[in-house]
């Protein structure tokens, strides 16, 4: 096959890509940097780089090592699995194109796990807290049941257009990683503690910390649904208690790093407005 002529030479294309990965063998163990080198191919993304690293299982010094562990799913930026910190910035690794990364940083690509969640291994972190936040704000429509009861409420086009972007949140955790008010909660299992006890202790710890922009936005989404609204008081109670919307520091990093460009800061402001109204009502209505 003819190597693509003038086009290829005009773009600088290295034959190898250097990758530096912050690895960690397990929870509580010390992290360490490791260098890998993979063959360059056109149209690579960080996922394909990691796939190559897994296949060769060898550092750039030639030492045999275990493949780097990481989490991924759809590879088209709708599942939210493959979040990590790439060249210092949190993002989805599937949409992190190698050519773009090399343009900004030709020497190497730096991969590290998210810093706000406990590391399970290497680039894999435990994001269960993120889903726990969705329970805190009761992010669901409290329907009677799943028997046929006819169509749902009529929804105007405006409402749909306002809600659809919020509903695209894929719980990837980028907003939480970039949020200066969202801090890591990492607990160690006590000796003799059962799975259930440990899980309960973790949930209790999560429950008083900042819920995060994603959950605030979901609360706003469901408060604006004609039936979802029925839980509004409970959601507002959650959003005005410890770790609620008042914990937001308005740094607005969340909206800047959200891969789905969800208007998180607008949701936060809407939640703030609702919280203000709720606080007054609570004081004077009841």
């Amino acid at each position: 096959m003819i190597a693509a002529g003038p086009e290829a030479t005009s773009k600088r294309r290295p034959s190898k890509i250097n990758v530096r990965v912050l690895r960690q063998d397990g929870p509580g163990l010390p992290p360490y940097w490791e260098r890998h080198q993979v063959e360059y191919e056109p149209d690579m993304n960080v996922i394909s780089v990691l796939q190559k690293i897994a296949a060769q299982a060898r550092t750039s010094e030639g030492n045999a090592v275990a493949p780097v562990a990481w989490d991924c799913g759809c590879l088209e930026e709708v599942c939210g699995s493959c979040t990590m910190v790439i060249n210092g910035r949190v993002r989805q690794s599937c949409s992190a194109l190698v050519d773009r990364l090399l343009e900004d940083h030709p020497e190497e690509i730096e991969l590290r796990p998210m810093t706000k969640f406990p590391v399970i291994r290497d680039l894999m972190v435990d994001r269960s807290r993120l889903f726990h936040s969705l329970k805190r704000v009761k992010a669901w429509v409290p329907v009677d049941g799943y028997f046929d009861m006819g169509a749902g409420p009529r929804i105007s086009r405006d409402e749909q257009e306002q809600n659809y972007p919020l509903s695209q949140c894929m719980s990837c955790g980028c907003c939480l990683e970039a949020c200066p008010q969202f801090n890591k909660v990492e607990l160690q299992r006590n000796p003799g503690e059962s799975d259930e006890e440990f899980a309960a202790r973790k949930e209790a710890a999560y429950s008083v910390e900042f819920v995060g922009p994603h959950a605030i936005s979901q609360a706003v989404l469901f408060n604006s649904h004609p039936v979802g609204k029925n839980l509004e008081r409970e959601r507002m109670e959650a959003l005005t208690s410890s770790g609620g919307v008042q914990a937001c520091g308005n740094a607005q990093n969340c909206v800047a790093v959200c891969p789905k460009e969800i208007p998180l800061t607008t949701s936060i402001a809407r939640a703030g407005r609702a919280a203000t109204v709720y606080a007054f009502k609570k004081l004077f209505d009841r």
Binding site: A178, P180, Q181, G249, N250, Q252, A256
Partner: peptide, 20 residues
Amino acid sequence: SGHSNLNRYRLAGNRRYTWQ
């Protein structure tokens, strides 16, 4: 209760957050 990460996210809002 917060930890500034301005070194990594040099964004206008984040600067204001830190300066606040």
